[in-house]
Simulated scan of single mutants.
Amino acid sequence: MSQLSEFEGRSGAEFTMTVETGKIREFAAAVGAGHPLHSGDDPISPPTFLASSAFWTTDAGAAWGDQPPDLSRVLHAGQQYVFHGPPPKAGTVLHCRERIDRVYTKQGRRGGALEFADIVTEFRDADGRLVAEARATLVVTEQAPTA
């Protein structure tokens, strides 16, 4: 087993993400978010736009650091966003930090033990105010599933 429990509570380095006008428009088009708020001169990001923060970080920003689990056995089991105000608009600079909030194990039916990791990314504005949180749940299988 991958022993994810050793990573529980670990945080990555802070990284910054600039919410850019063109990126909001591109993301909105890609996910079919056609609301006029996501276009124009001063667009507001679609709620799931924060997923693009993955393109702004490095290994240092990831809570796993340079020791991620074996990606051939990782499943994305869920994603949730909590906003503490409106979604960020173009021009906002977000200060982000990812942490492994919780790790737990369940027995799978076909792939052996399953390790779950809840990963939380906090997004703060220039004043340190919490703008949003993204919570992802990853599953690492003990072995490849059998038929």
Rank of each mutant, 00 (worst) to 15 (best):
I100W: 02
E133W: 10
S53F: 13
L114T: 06
R110K: 15
G12E: 02
D101R: 13
A132C: 13
R110I: 08
C96Y: 09
Q143I: 05
T21N: 09
E20S: 10
R129Q: 14
S52E: 08
S72A: 15
A117I: 04
H35V: 03
D125A: 04
R102T: 10
D70C: 00
D66L: 01
D101C: 08
E14T: 12
T57E: 09
T16I: 06
G85C: 08
V74F: 00
R102W: 06
T48I: 08
A51H: 11
D125N: 14
F7M: 11
H38E: 05
D101I: 00
S52Y: 06
G40I: 15
A126F: 01
P46A: 06
E133K: 13
K89I: 05
A90R: 01
K106R: 15
G12L: 08
E20I: 06
V74A: 00
M17K: 10
S5E: 14
W64C: 00
R109H: 07
A77L: 10
V139R: 02
G9R: 10
R10M: 05
H95N: 15
Y81D: 03
M17A: 06
S5L: 06
A134G: 13
L71Q: 11
F27R: 00
A126K: 12
S39D: 14
A147S: 10
G61K: 05
A60G: 04
H84K: 12
H76P: 11
K89H: 14
T57R: 14
R97D: 07
S45H: 06
A144Q: 12
H76C: 04
F123C: 07
V74M: 01
T16E: 15
T92I: 09
K89D: 12
T137P: 07
H95C: 09
E20K: 12
Q3K: 07
S53R: 09
V93Q: 08
S52R: 13
E20R: 15
A126H: 11
T58D: 14
H84G: 03
A126I: 08
P68T: 04
G40D: 07
G9L: 06
T105A: 05
K106Y: 05
L130D: 13
P68F: 02
A28Y: 01
D118C: 04
V120H: 12
E133R: 12
L114F: 08
E14R: 07
T146G: 13
G111K: 05
R124I: 02
G65A: 00
R129F: 00
F15S: 02
T92Y: 02
G61C: 13
V120K: 10
R10W: 01
I100E: 03
F55R: 07
Q107C: 01
A13S: 09
H95K: 10
D66K: 11
H35G: 07
V103S: 08
T146D: 07
V93N: 01
A77G: 15
F55A: 13
R109S: 15
T146P: 00
G85D: 11
R129Y: 01
T92C: 14
L37P: 01
G40F: 11
P87N: 02
A62H: 12
A13F: 03
P88Y: 09
P43D: 07
A147T: 12
P47S: 09
A29S: 08
Q107M: 07
T21F: 03
